[in-house]
Amino acid sequence: MTWDKDLLDKANKIIELYPQKRSALGPLLHIAQNKDGYISDDSVEVISGLVGITEVQVKSVASFYSMYKQEPTGKYLISVCKSISCEILDSKSVIDAVKDFTGLDNNETDEEELFTFEAVECIGACGGAPAVQVNYETVEGLTPSNAISLCQMLKDEQPELVNADILQEKFGGVKSFDWAIKDTSGTIGTAPGFQTFDTDEVSK
């Protein structure tokens, strides 16, 4: 438990990016999410010390945002969009498929802590409806059967790095727009893969 030196150094670097300490709260919570798969009370205490506000103030902010999870999540966070464009293009069937495969209901995590399933609001992939995100890496134009093979692949191969382009190529369909350039970087863990947080990685 508690944050090791590297993590604290990173935290302090991030704090320096902002005119006021408290602005770093969001980024620090992403790091906490990546560390434990949820916002642990322990991290709340550490962060409260780092930005100089009370624990409950940290908790208050953390619990406001849906990407900071209050319960431990699995290795892969499967977020299927259910907002209007996906809804009218039958995202329900994709949701059911994923539910079936994982045996999970909304916001549930399996015993093996492999999958967490959630039906989410618009992820900005409406042109490629129905769409899903795996650890915030987007896959567009999904079919129920592709959704299942996607989960199957994750289950069998359990990749550390999740990369939108690779997933899209294997399991995706219609896209919101031409992605053109292949990205080699992706996400590790259940916080968005982003350089500043060291939650991204470049695939070899």
Partner: peptide
Amino acid sequence: RGEYAKPARRVQN
């Protein structure tokens, strides 16, 4: 927005 991981990486680069 936090869900835009890939766009964010591109912008950060």
